[in-house]
Nucleic acid binder design. Structure first.
Ligand SMILES: [Mn+2]
Ligand SMILES: [Mn+2]
Ligand SMILES: [Zn+2]
Ligand SMILES: [Zn+2]
Lengths: 150, 150
DNA sequence: ATCTAAATGATAGTGATTATCAATATCAAA
DNA sequence: TTTGATATTGATAATCACTATCATTTAGAT
């Protein structure tokens, strides 16, 4: 849960400043279910700090990405969705083209295959994004109902 | 090479019109090396038809995607890159974060693993995008030179 | 050749993200 | 604990990729 210390040390290591806003945005992201976009992170952060700015949200999300504490995913909408990184569970994403539902996957096998493939080519892989799209159980035949969104 | 016939028939099947512009854009995409973005496709098309419009390029690329004749990839820049589909060789992409070079992969094993994983969850997969990023052979240690771009 | 709906192209508009910059806050040093 | 240098913020303008609009053109049927 609290990657707060590693955040603080990573920040200080680079001569940056640990601000109230940065801590808040990380907390918002870590306490979020699913894959909020920048606007959602902004809305949640604003509940706790009404003076926070949109630009700061974007800047901080970019910073968290650089530090490896957040990932950005393209889930088929025209904008990014974010997720706090839990290094113990790298996972992949499926998006239903009809209802927009996002399903998460784990596959150590795909991770292994990818790594060995890349090593053979002399590539140093820092990030893997696997994204499928198609139709979920409910949307596949001739439609039951489907609720959740990214 | 010439998926021109399948294009013509797919177009007519839907009561659409086979225009000079649509044929040109498909030809441009098929004769392109690498992964041109919309602007590059526009530039190449304009060499052969100076009157062609940007909107038509976007519209046609979207159409080709729908018909399964083109794929769009997010290679880490903020915009899409396109590629004519060669159904015999589904492949994946690696982007070097330093020099921007794109390396292509083939992995029947990953394709198989993905398909079986999704079937277990009742998902109908229509599209798989696997994208790694990191540092290529030349950019990994302390830098040799690196040329090609997306 | 004529007709009609689909498609085009110029351009305005949109939505997401980034740049700018004066005001503010962090944090180290005095 | 004040002070001071400067990193950061927040309001907002700007940019960038892409989409909508609409008058004009064109493909393809008759
Ligand atoms: Mn996820
Ligand atoms: Mn490719
Ligand atoms: Zn669905
Ligand atoms: Zn490189």
């Amino acid at each position: 849960m609290r990657s707060n210390e590693s955040f603080a040390s990573a920040i200080r290591l680079r001569g940056m400043k640990l601000t109230r806003q940065r801590q808040l945005i990380l907390e918002v992201l870590e306490s979020s279910r699913g894959h909020p976009d920048a606007e959602m992170v902004y809305a949640k952060a604003k509940e706790r700090d009404p003076r926070i700015g949109f630009a700061t949200v974007y800047r901080t999300l970019a910073l968290l990405k650089q530090l490896g504490l957040a990932e950005e995913h393209n889930l088929g909408e025209g904008h990014g969705h974010f997720e706090a990184v839990d290094k113990t569970k790298p996972h992949f994403h499926f998006t239903c083209l009809k209802c927009g539902k996002v399903v998460e996957f784990v596959s150590p096998q795909i991770l292994r295959t990818t790594q060995s493939l890349c090593e053979k080519k002399g590539l140093l892989v820092t990030d893997i994004h696997l994204h499928f799209s198609g139709y979920c159980r409910h949307c596949r035949p001739a439609g039951s109902e489907c609720a959740e969104k990214p």
